[in-house]
Design a protein around this nucleic acid. Structure first.
Length: 255
DNA sequence: ATGTCCAAATATTTTGGA
């Protein structure tokens, strides 16, 4: 089964590209981020005609995540637990085809230092707490999304380029590693350990044209899911289309 | 050259976020 994660950067602006990608790639499960629309405005009917069920956790204007699936999905968790005051729509978890899947839009955290960076680190701590619980049952779990963390120096075109950015701060990287050390497998890294694979190219400064990208979209597999890992990668071509998102889909194939 | 794109309000331009 093919599971993908794709930060689409706006549903309204990206719908033709999204439909085209679903038709071409035919993922069994697609975790979307930055849908930037309210739940009730998400194009559920259009996607149903394209062959997908939708679970949606939207928000007006910003953020927002969704899980599309070819088979019906059962929602398990809406919003990341651990802070009742958190209004931002960044987490959705479901049971689909015998696999537990989460769509994650981790806070960007810029500018740093500052309250947005503090929110990012607190959110990562909450994710770590929730993820620990998910490992206990021993089920196949895939935590897929835009983590807004560049894990290694070879996950970016120039190791020094984002040195002062929240995506590359030691605290951000440490929090990501702490999550991995619970027992998660970074699927793309596992199959491409030498790096050099990007999932994001900035619209600015000719990022795509110069291949100035980095890897921030990750699929973390529980041991039961990692045992089934067949292949993983990034669909780079998607980034080169007209009216493309600034992210390309990352994916895993499980046996 | 702090360079582009998206969504919403301030609404045919500006703003906040990324």
């Amino acid at each position: 089964m093919l599971i993908a994660t794709f930060n689409i950067n706006g549903t309204n602006a990206r719908l033709p590209r999204l439909l085209e990608w679903l038709e071409e790639a035919r993922p069994d499960i697609a975790c979307l981020q930055e849908i930037k629309t309210m739940t009730e405005n998400f194009p559920v009917e259009t996607l149903r005609e394209a062959g997908y069920h939708c679970l949606v956790h939207g928000q007006k204007g910003f953020n927002g995540v969704a899980i599309l699936s070819r088979e019906p999905a059962t929602e398990v968790q809406r919003g990341l637990p651990g802070d009742e005051t958190d209004e931002q729509s960044r987490y959705l978890e479901a049971e689909v085809m015998g696999v537990r899947v989460a769509s994650i839009y981790l806070p960007n955290g810029n500018p740093q230092p500052g309250p947005k960076f503090d929110y990012k680190l607190a959110w990562m701590e909450r994710l770590r707490a929730h993820a620990a619980g998910l490992l206990e049952a021993g089920l196949p779990v895939v935590l897929a999304g835009d983590y807004n963390v560049i894990p290694n120096d070879d996950d970016i075109w120039d190791a020094s380029a984002m040195r002062d950015d929240a995506l590359r701060q030691p605290q951000s990287v440490a929090a990501y590693r702490q999550l991995l050390w619970q027992g998660w497998t970074d699927a793309v890294r596992q199959l491409h350990p030498v790096g050099g694979i990007w999932s994001f190219w900035d619209y600015q400064a000719g990022g795509w044209q110069r291949d100035h990208g980095f890897r921030i979209d990750h699929l973390l597999l529980s041991p039961a899911a990692a045992d089934r890992l067949q292949d993983a990668g990034v669909m780079k071509d998607v980034r080169g289309k007209e009216k493309a998102s600034d992210h390309a889909p990352a994916w895993v194939r499980l046996r």
